[in-house]
Simulated assay, not measured.
Amino acid sequence: MKILLIEDDKKIADYVVKGFSEAGHVCDHLENGSDGLSQGTRERYDIIIADRMLPGLDGLSMVKALRAAGTKTPVIFLTSVSGVDDRVQGLEAGGDDYLVKPFAFSELAARVAALARRPAMQEQETVLRVHDLELDLIRRRVTRAGKEIDLQPKEFLLLETLMRAEGRVLTRTMLLEAVWDFHFDPQTSVVETHVSRLRAKIDKPFDVPLLHTVRSTGYSIHAPR
């Protein structure tokens, strides 16, 4: 496995690099967020591990820029910032997991392995369609009735999750797990907020609504019936 570690604490970085090297993995290390952005977009990695507090470019901004550039490499935030809102910010920025310092290397390695086991995108599923709404997974582009729609990374992933389950109702818990990788209730309105933003972009400018709220259950996207 090829891993990119972006961490400005040398002691922690040496510890992590040593652990992954002993496990037979390649672990490149950078100390600066700007360098991490350049390396992460230029080279292919299986996993990126990034601190939030980085010189040059902070971790949140770096990951947002990576996602905007089309880099889909899973990202684990490794940070001392531990509040629920901080975790939500990290995941909304495009992170896939969040591990708080101090940490056990065994847990970090397990989280890296779990992300690496996620199934690769199948080639035939590069474009998802529901009625006149299209989501291009390769170009990271969304259109409806030929009109391009600008989505933030988590809005894009939320829409992708709903479109893959076309016609089925996804609960709030299912969306928290699929989009934000939460396996607990963070007691925030992150799902409702993102659904509202998504609806404003893909439905409100058009005559036919596609994204539906199923009272006391969850959300579903489907063509007109």
Rank of each mutant, 00 (worst) to 15 (best):
M1E: 08
I3G: 00
D8N: 15
D9E: 15
K10N: 11
K11S: 12
K11H: 11
K11D: 11
V17S: 02
K18M: 08
G24Y: 06
C27S: 02
L30A: 07
L30T: 05
L37T: 08
T41G: 15
T41H: 14
T41L: 14
T41Q: 15
E43I: 01
Y45F: 13
Y45V: 01
I49A: 01
A50D: 07
D51S: 13
G59S: 10
M62H: 08
M62V: 07
A65L: 09
R67H: 12
A68P: 00
A69V: 02
G70R: 13
V75M: 03
I76P: 02
F77Q: 09
F77Y: 15
L78E: 02
S80D: 12
S82N: 13
G83N: 05
G83L: 06
G83C: 01
V84H: 00
V88Q: 02
V88H: 01
A93V: 06
A93Q: 09
G94K: 05
G95M: 06
D97F: 07
E107T: 15
L108Y: 11
A109C: 02
A110C: 06
V112I: 04
A113F: 02
A113K: 11
R118N: 05
E123Q: 01
Q124C: 01
Q124L: 00
E125P: 00
L128G: 08
V130S: 08
L133H: 10
L137C: 15
R139G: 10
R141A: 12
T143Y: 06
G146K: 11
K147M: 05
E148H: 03
D150F: 10
L151V: 14
L151D: 12
L151G: 11
K154P: 00
E155S: 10
F156Q: 11
L157I: 06
L162C: 10
M163E: 03
R164T: 10
E166D: 08
E166L: 02
D181G: 03
F184E: 14
D185Q: 01
Q187V: 12
T188R: 09
V190L: 07
V191R: 05
V191K: 09
H194R: 11
V195Q: 06
L198N: 04
P205L: 01
P205G: 01
P205M: 01
D207L: 09
V208D: 15
H212P: 01
T213R: 14
S216N: 12
T217A: 13
G218T: 10
G218Y: 07
G218F: 06
Y219T: 03
I221H: 04
I221C: 08
I221V: 14
H222C: 08
R225K: 13
